[in-house]
Nucleic acid binder design. Structure first.
Lengths: 259, 259
DNA sequence: CCCATCAGCCTTGTATGCAAGGGTTCATCT
DNA sequence: AGATGAACCCTTGCATACAAGGCTGATGGG
């Protein structure tokens, strides 16, 4: 299904595996997912209308590289929606709160364990889950896409990333929700998103080489064998689970269709 | 361009010319816009990801007919975003206010003139313009799509439509904005959207024949000459300016929402 | 007379083929 | 050597052809 490609790209972004500017060649993706270019184009166009990728005519599809203005707009939009959502909530079921508690606990563990990749992913997931339990699928969808954008922004402009502070913020928000103090939860959410945005340096020129640089840092042994097209390895990014030493020829093609 | 088709559909919906459930045949649109089916499919798929149309496999593309739950979700989303937006605004340029003042004046005139079609369109446009002057293109886009949805909802579930009251609400919101009392503006906005939603009867079975019924009411002279494809005339709906076949004054004023 | 079955048509679904345009590289000229 | 131009290759853009499935209408049987 075409939704697989879309979802794979979104998840790769949310999981921090796919950087802004990554080229998504139609033929490459077609081969990777074992579908025709037609399906890939469908997925790309859907992702384009969701603001996740953009096309440069005759050049190719690329994961968006939000400008500073677009970055600010994305954070502003999240502030608007997430605080609006909390302001308007009138009650939250205990089960939902429990689920969110579990989530922040997992966050904490991942951060304590130093797992940068999955902790970033989990921190973003918190907001999506929070939207989910508010019961509006439209807003959940919108926030998922906005979160993907802000994750991309973070990759481009990140100057510091205080995951522990974010986790603390999440806990504080949950405390307010548990106390049924929704205005306070909304205020805390606004502050939290402010903190995250403040951790960026939007005056910075986007660091387009960050992905490549990381490759050299983390994998200094074999830098000569560069990926065929461009700086980032699309196949690796799209693979459901992070780096991992490449299993013998196990790309996405041999996964069952029903996923 | 493919964006033309997308935009034409959106505008036809916002303008109240295209009803929920309208079938959008690929070949028909291709002929209408003089493009190939490929381009039409692109547009449809983009509109599908925006939640405006849906595809029934091997059946065709249709303008969405939101269920009662989806209707509530759409209004809720608008409440969340529009109140959140106003809550977060810290200043509004005088020129923007002036533009909005002009807009509500035009609304008033259209309502006074009994121009049902364009007054409904203008009432929706107010919210989009308000979002626009808040300066966040992302949210503007999102609200445009949500507004299109709520317009469709209104067509399906409308029991009464107090355009004058909506216009009054808009004026009150503008007054609050002019007084720099943004929390009050947000509260008024929440009330306003509540009013609009309250004017619907979401327990009602959607009236799928409303479009056809209207055709017979307004055009009783020649009911035999039915539109070539299905109940609603896609070509007429997509045409930038309303009916045109009948003298301007007569039709629109005598459109009672019979219910 | 009514109902079931089947064939034809009309719809979307999907792949493939060709066209168009931009980048890169190599060769040639200054 | 450097610059410039052209040819090639690789990319997306787009249309068309065919496949698959549902709906409708006709036809035959009960």
């Amino acid at each position: 299904m075409v939704v697989d490609i879309e979802q794979a790209v979104i998840e790769a972004i949310l999981g921090g595996r796919m950087r802004p500017g990554t080229r998504l060649g139609e033929s490459d993706l077609a081969e990777l997912f074992d579908v025709s270019r037609t399906r890939v184009r469908e997925a790309m166009m859907r992702l384009e209308t969701r603001g996740i990728v953009q096309v440069l005519p005759r050049r190719g599809w690329f994961v968006v590289e939000p400008s500073a203005d677009e970055a600010r707009a994305a954070f502003h939009a999240r502030r608007v929606i997430e605080t609006g959502l909390l302001h308007m909530v009138s009650a939250m079921p205990a089960s939902a709160l429990a689920g969110l508690r579990r989530h922040v606990e997992i966050e904490r563990a991942a951060i304590a364990g130093g797992d940068i990749g999955s902790s970033a992913c989990l921190l973003g997931d918190f907001h999506i889950h929070l939207a989910e339990v508010c019961g509006n699928p439209l807003l959940t969808e919108i926030l998922r896409d906005l979160t993907a954008r802000t994750v991309l922004v973070s990759m481009l402009y990140q100057s510091r990333d205080d995951a522990a502070a974010s986790n603390d913020d999440h806990v504080a928000i949950l405390d307010a929700l548990e106390a049924q103090d929704f205005p306070r939860a909304a205020a805390l959410m606004a502050e939290h998103i402010d903190h995250v945005e403040a951790g960026l340096d939007l005056t910075l020129q986007p660091d387009r080489l960050a992905g490549l640089r990381e490759l050299f840092i983390t994998d200094a042994a074999g830098p000569a064998g560069a990926p065929p097209h461009g700086a980032t390895d699309v196949a690796a990014a799209l693979r459901p689970h992070p780096p991992a030493a490449t299993p013998p020829g196990a790309i996405l093609s041999q996964q069952p269709k029903d996923d």
